[in-house]
Design a protein around this nucleic acid. Sequence first.
DNA 1: CATGAATGAGAGTTCATTCAT
DNA 2: AATGAATGAACTCTCATTCAT
Lengths: 194, 194, 194, 194
Amino acid sequence: MSLRERKAARKKEDILRSASLVISRQGFHNATMEDIAAELLMTKGSLYYYFKNKEELLYRCHDLILSDAMDKLESIYLEKISSTEKIKKAIKVHLDIAIREKEIFNLIVKPEQLFSEAHIESIISKRDKYSGIFDEIINQGVEKGEFIIKQKKMARMIILGATNWIQVWYSPEGDFSKEEIEEIYAEYLLKMLV
Amino acid sequence: MSLRERKAARKKEDILRSASLVISRQGFHNATMEDIAAELLMTKGSLYYYFKNKEELLYRCHDLILSDAMDKLESIYLEKISSTEKIKKAIKVHLDIAIREKEIFNLIVKPEQLFSEAHIESIISKRDKYSGIFDEIINQGVEKGEFIIKQKKMARMIILGATNWIQVWYSPEGDFSKEEIEEIYAEYLLKMLV
Amino acid sequence: MSLRERKAARKKEDILRSASLVISRQGFHNATMEDIAAELLMTKGSLYYYFKNKEELLYRCHDLILSDAMDKLESIYLEKISSTEKIKKAIKVHLDIAIREKEIFNLIVKPEQLFSEAHIESIISKRDKYSGIFDEIINQGVEKGEFIIKQKKMARMIILGATNWIQVWYSPEGDFSKEEIEEIYAEYLLKMLV
Amino acid sequence: MSLRERKAARKKEDILRSASLVISRQGFHNATMEDIAAELLMTKGSLYYYFKNKEELLYRCHDLILSDAMDKLESIYLEKISSTEKIKKAIKVHLDIAIREKEIFNLIVKPEQLFSEAHIESIISKRDKYSGIFDEIINQGVEKGEFIIKQKKMARMIILGATNWIQVWYSPEGDFSKEEIEEIYAEYLLKMLV
DNA sequence: CATGAATGAGAGTTCATTCAT
DNA sequence: AATGAATGAACTCTCATTCAT
């Protein structure tokens, strides 16, 4: 990759970061291209130099965060620790991202309302892959006898639902630190599995 | 209430129902005033006779559903049954509404993005009141020794998060009936409390 | 048709007329929706109440003029006169329209550049039908021995080309009146056929 | 002319050729500076080194082709052949260019829509000069008794109109070869003059 | 010389809202 | 009470043009 290309790649990332920020603040539907550009002191026209349209930009945004989440989750999955530890760590990581990227994470919820067919498939498949790791961890735990749960899919849904919800109420100024919250969530959700 | 007023009240309800329907189908951001009117074979201009603007309409819509949920929840709260039974019933009722009114329920999640300051306070207070009943049920359970849980608020958050999330994946064509799902959810979430 | 509908139909026609005018003045590519609306003292948004988008509006515009031309041409075709008279009259009518609706007539030339697949077929078929009447007149003339020409299609092309071209140079202030020009064109082009 | 200047001149020609190509393919209104540059594997910014803006480029493009046509037409005019032969040759040459440079030739039709006042005069004067040669040929033919036609200007208009029109329908895959078409056109249009 | 990047004006389109009838 | 019609602001997107490097 040449210097030029690296610069362009960096700029693209900057834009995605800016987009994430604006979206987190205003929600996607209220985030205009102008807003996103303004955040970077650019003009909206310039965005189109890097992304062919708004959907593409949003898609990349979404993809970036989901990929990042995937990486973290996968490396937990590969660790040599008990399933109990794995699910706890997974919950914490998921909470962490859900707090940081709240709006983007919401895109994962209803991609149909925002993305056209061109992207929807890829998004859903990535989302399923992500959930799949949770399933795997739960499966292993059940096999090893660490977890006692019959409806494994449902348990995963409960876990993801509960953790995603955190965006709604979490505030850095709250009574508990992020770490404390993560610890409690992990502990409580684990009670459900054992 | 005069006949005329009763007629108008009835019409307002019709509109709210129609709005709920359209919003559930398309999401709010994709539900135009025209869509809502069309559902009732009206024209969008007429809606403004009953509601002063779109936000007002959406607010009433939201309010209606939340009030309905409140009523159901309160009557459960007042029943003479164990806290365990109460929380189970509450979870089931909440799931029921979340499934039926998925899009409207989303409004509860982030009212700031849609509602202006005129309504936001009322919405949040109603939402808090609703959550408060869950808190009460949990509190009573703990006091009576039915539940063993320290972070009661957090537990409530987990319960509401998990149940709200159901809209994302529930489909009438799925492997489980709505009743089965409700049963499993109630059972699993209860494990967390005891 | 109710009064309302008649009014709306009339308005649509007004818009088409306005569009024709603006297009004649500025060419389609330079005719914006705003220009067209301004001609009628409307705002561009209103146009969308009557036509779903610019292409649709342009298509209707084009269709109106071509249909009108068709009617005139067909009635000439059905007259009980010699082929010589018919082709003369046809040429005059065509010149007449070409002068009046110069830009719109140009649409007939290159529909591909402006219309999407939704309309292109209908346009081409109408255009072909129009040319077809010229062909018929020529055919009949040849059969009856009035015309002596081998390449009938080519002759038709020459006639239409020559007459369409008139938009380029005709001016009401020129040396000849429109009627004189039509007479001369008809006479000269006829020489080619006999 | 220095080496540098010669190089620049050559490049300018390349650009004009490329522009002609792109315009022929897409029409001017759909031919962007980017398209033209891409054809030469350049970036659009570079075009501005050679031409001060798009209009200038288009003007030169147009000028090049018209000058070329002029040259060919003039040399025919100077040949020692009958007026009949001259007009035939002129028609064929004109058809040839009209087919090859269809879109550019269209510019000749309505320069007002594309060119600003800075160029319009020069374009019209060149166009008139071009037409003037046709007039001259016709004049000579009439003087020599080869042609019998009163409205000479009108006859020239018919000829140019008919021949320009060929762009609309000519296709290399058609029933007739280009040469056959040219022959027929020349023959038929001549019938009008004699 | 050439390019990558940025700009800004303007286009088409959507939609909540208003209002005379 | 209801509607048809009109409006205007906001949005996405395009593209000729500029300019530092």
